[in-house]
Amino acid sequence: MNLPKELKYTKDHEWVRIDGNVATVGITDFAQRELGDIVYVEIETEGDEVEEGEVFGTVEAVKTVSDLFMPLSGTISEVNEALEGEPELVNTDPYGQGWMIKIEVADESAADNLLSADEYAEVIGQ
């Protein structure tokens, strides 16, 4: 299971890359494997201010649908438009081209509450 050390994680199987006050968010390798082939990523919250823990979109796999939760409070400044035409990027490159949103984080210190790679590995029993 691929779990890059430099990333932060959530119990909802999202990863977060912190760069100043901008957080890039996607779903983990574990999550994409559990979901199977992803066929549709629906995020209609661009420009919105969304609280931590709230739903910012949904991801549809062939067999199942799953909500996407905000790992940190802030404003959704960008949505990965490539996923519109190629949602399978979430399967093939979950930590790279399969990223989903960028957040202008409201409170940078909140990132300290996210999980490390080791802590997340425990969550998924690896």
Binding site: G36, D37, V62, K63
Partner: peptide, 11 residues
Amino acid sequence: PVRYTSDMEEH
């Protein structure tokens, strides 16, 4: 077994 590799590929 629900899937071995990919639902789409298996289909």
